[in-house]
Amino acid sequence: MSQNDTATTTNPAEYLAFTLGKEEYGIDIQKVSEIRNYESPTRIASAPDYVKGVINLRGIIVPIVDMRVRFNLGTPEYGPFTVVIILNIGNRVVGMVVDAVSDVTTLTPEQIKSAPDMGSTLNTEYIVGLGTVEERMLILVDIDRLMSSEEMGLIEAIAA
């Protein structure tokens, strides 16, 4: 076991921190292509409640998902800090509405704890773990798995 072997297992990763309600979440910064001010998307008939609609982003039609609605965190309020995080998921571009973006946080593997098993009360399938930075705790979301999940129906619905 050389020193390099240890270094590869302890590489820090960067997460974009954002808020939904009173909670702070984080996603892999490498999935983020840009952050935009919230603008009301064009509504699509028969779309689930959490799919707010679509926007035209430089010629690409981008579905917009409201994460507060998706996670059942109450009625969303769109204010001056509300933003859309544009993501690259597989071969798709998807936008997600969040209350605000905090910062980019670097976490080492030691700072990331496994998500607790909440039984059937909470679906932790899309949670990578809990990242701790001093007094802050970030709920780390596997955004690939969430956005491409069958229940979201997003990728299939847009591709059809």
Rank of each mutant, 00 (worst) to 15 (best):
residue 8 T to I: 15
residue 78 Y to C: 11
residue 47 A to E: 04
residue 9 T to W: 00
residue 33 S to R: 09
residue 126 Y to S: 07
residue 122 L to Y: 13
residue 148 S to A: 08
residue 127 I to K: 03
residue 90 G to A: 02
residue 96 M to K: 04
residue 23 E to T: 14
residue 80 P to S: 11
residue 21 G to T: 03
residue 115 A to L: 02
residue 30 Q to R: 13
residue 16 L to K: 01
residue 38 Y to C: 09
residue 159 A to P: 05
residue 151 E to L: 07
residue 50 Y to K: 08
residue 13 A to Q: 11
residue 77 E to M: 13
residue 50 Y to C: 11
residue 145 R to S: 10
residue 86 I to E: 12
residue 134 E to C: 11
residue 79 G to P: 15
residue 103 D to E: 14
residue 84 V to E: 13
residue 111 Q to P: 05
residue 102 S to H: 06
residue 122 L to P: 10
residue 141 V to P: 00
residue 76 P to F: 03
residue 6 T to H: 08
residue 112 I to Q: 09
residue 44 I to R: 00
residue 104 V to M: 03
residue 45 A to E: 11
residue 73 L to N: 09
residue 109 P to C: 07
residue 89 I to N: 11
residue 8 T to L: 05
residue 61 I to F: 00
residue 45 A to D: 12
residue 86 I to S: 09
residue 77 E to H: 15
residue 112 I to L: 02
residue 144 D to N: 09
residue 29 I to A: 12
residue 103 D to S: 07
residue 59 G to N: 14
residue 90 G to D: 13
residue 138 L to N: 11
residue 88 N to A: 15
residue 145 R to N: 12
residue 145 R to L: 12
residue 151 E to G: 10
residue 147 M to Q: 14
residue 160 A to Q: 15
residue 63 P to S: 05
residue 93 V to W: 00
residue 91 N to H: 07
residue 43 R to Q: 11
residue 2 S to T: 14
residue 137 M to L: 06
residue 134 E to N: 15
residue 83 V to C: 13
residue 153 G to V: 08
residue 121 T to S: 15
residue 45 A to S: 10
residue 112 I to P: 00
residue 66 D to W: 01
residue 113 K to Q: 13
residue 103 D to W: 03
residue 1 M to H: 13
residue 105 T to D: 06
residue 117 D to E: 15
residue 35 I to F: 01
residue 81 F to K: 14
residue 127 I to Q: 04
residue 108 T to H: 02
residue 75 T to C: 06
residue 120 S to C: 03
residue 114 S to W: 06
residue 19 T to M: 02
residue 104 V to D: 08
residue 142 D to S: 05
residue 36 R to A: 15
residue 25 Y to I: 07
residue 132 T to D: 04
residue 136 R to S: 11
residue 91 N to R: 09
residue 96 M to D: 11
residue 108 T to N: 06
residue 15 Y to N: 06
residue 1 M to T: 09
residue 45 A to R: 04
residue 68 R to A: 11
residue 97 V to G: 07
residue 81 F to H: 09
residue 140 L to Y: 04
residue 144 D to H: 04
residue 2 S to C: 08
residue 76 P to W: 02
residue 22 K to A: 10
residue 76 P to K: 05
residue 103 D to Q: 12
residue 21 G to E: 04
residue 73 L to R: 04
residue 6 T to I: 14
residue 160 A to M: 13
residue 123 N to R: 03
residue 39 E to F: 08
residue 113 K to E: 14
residue 154 L to A: 04
residue 150 E to V: 12
residue 12 P to D: 13
residue 77 E to G: 15
residue 26 G to T: 10
residue 58 R to K: 11
residue 71 F to I: 03
residue 114 S to I: 09
residue 93 V to E: 02
residue 116 P to V: 04
residue 132 T to V: 08
residue 78 Y to W: 01
residue 3 Q to R: 06
residue 115 A to E: 08
residue 141 V to Y: 00
residue 56 N to P: 12
residue 131 G to Q: 12
